[in-house]
């Protein structure tokens, strides 16, 4: 599996998904001609072309590597973990990844991206005979502006209802300003305990930007927040402008009666995700994550794939 996992890391680090590229292009077109915001998004798009063509990481912060691995019962977690770690070390050696794992007490960098809970791997057993892996590279700048609010929050007049959730999300994106390398992709977890709420918020980042939430209330909230937050005026990099977010993706979890968390996982524009399905050692790479299964993209299939 190691060679396929290595290729998955290379693809995630160097090739921005098509749906994200399209969203940035739409953002660029929404910015005024000659503005700093438009020029920034032009630079971003050109950067991604050069990165893909030269097989270099499109951002130097190759981030936390978050894996979701689906395995048949007869493939062991231990073996998959071994292959993921080997691929991670090799990817670092080949400069697809920056050495990004630092011991938090000694401050020593492990040098190969492996360490305590690094990379982050979630395993799921499933009934299919194939192994599937979804990978997200999430940089530190956007991770640092991720946030969690507990409702009610009197300072923003947010109560325990959908309107309160809406206000909490706007507030957290406002507070992030341009520090998370916007325009951002906003993954949200509503409810749950603090930890699971944020895990689910991050899982939303695997969804395609053009999908539609099958939950009608959440779909409407996503659409409304997308429009509203793009009127905030933060703009690309916080330069000011029309494009503050590229997408808003929300999931709900059941909560305790006592708790009501709203968790925002802010993703920079460089939403680097890739997926692979491995069958009899043959790998099929795609940009559609298993975590996005169940979310339909309206009009999908009519679009021509990138050459």
């Amino acid at each position: 599996m190691k060679k396929h996992f290595l290729e998955l890391i290379r693809r995630a680090a160097t090739d921005l998904p098509e749906d994200v590229t399209r969203a940035i292009e739409r953002g660029r077109d929404a910015e005024a001609c000659g503005s700093t915001a438009r020029s920034a998004l032009d630079d971003v798009l050109r950067n991604c072309e050069v990165a893909r063509a030269s097989s270099r990481p499109l951002c130097q912060d190759t981030g936390t590597n978050i894996w979701y691995v689906y395995r048949p019962a007869d493939v062991r977690e231990r073996e998959l973990t071994r292959d993921i770690l080997a691929a991670t070390r090799e990817a670092t050696r080949r400069s697809y990844l920056r050495p990004n794992a630092v011991d938090s007490i000694t401050q020593v960098n492990s040098g190969d991206n492996t360490g305590i809970r690094a990379p982050v791997v979630h395993f799921h057993e499933w009934s299919r005979k194939t192994v599937h892996a979804d990978l997200l590279l999430k940089g530190g700048g956007c991770e640092n502006v991720a946030a969690q609010l507990s409702l009610p929050d009197g300072s923003i007049k947010a109560g325990r209802d959908v309107e309160g959730v809406r206000k909490a999300i706007i507030e957290m994106v406002f507070r992030a300003q341009g520090r998370g390398c916007g325009p951002g992709i906003i993954g949200v977890g509503v409810g749950g305990d603090r930890a699971t709420s944020m895990v689910v918020a991050k899982e939303q980042l695997f969804r395609l930007l053009e999908d539609r939430n099958p939950d009608e209330t959440l779909a409407k909230l996503e659409e409304r927040l997308f429009a509203e937050m793009n009127t905030l005026g933060i703009g690309p990099m916080g330069f000011g402008g029309a494009t503050t977010v590229l997408g808003v993706k929300i999931a709900k979890l059941h909560r305790l009666p006592a708790s009501f968390f709203v968790s925002v996982a802010y993703m920079c524009w460089a939403c680097r995700r890739a997926s692979v399905t491995i069958s009899c050692d043959r790998a099929t790479f795609s940009q559609k994550a298993q975590l996005a299964a169940g979310y339909v993209v309206p009009g999908e299939g009519k679009r021509r794939p990138r050459a």
Partner: peptide, 20 residues
């Protein structure tokens, strides 16, 4: 500072969206 200008401008819009 452009950052001060953008913060001030976006704060007004945020206040309007939140009804503050």
């Amino acid at each position: 500072s452009l950052h001060d200008v953008v913060l001030k401008d976006t704060k007004e819009k945020r206040d309007a969206l939140l009804g503050l």
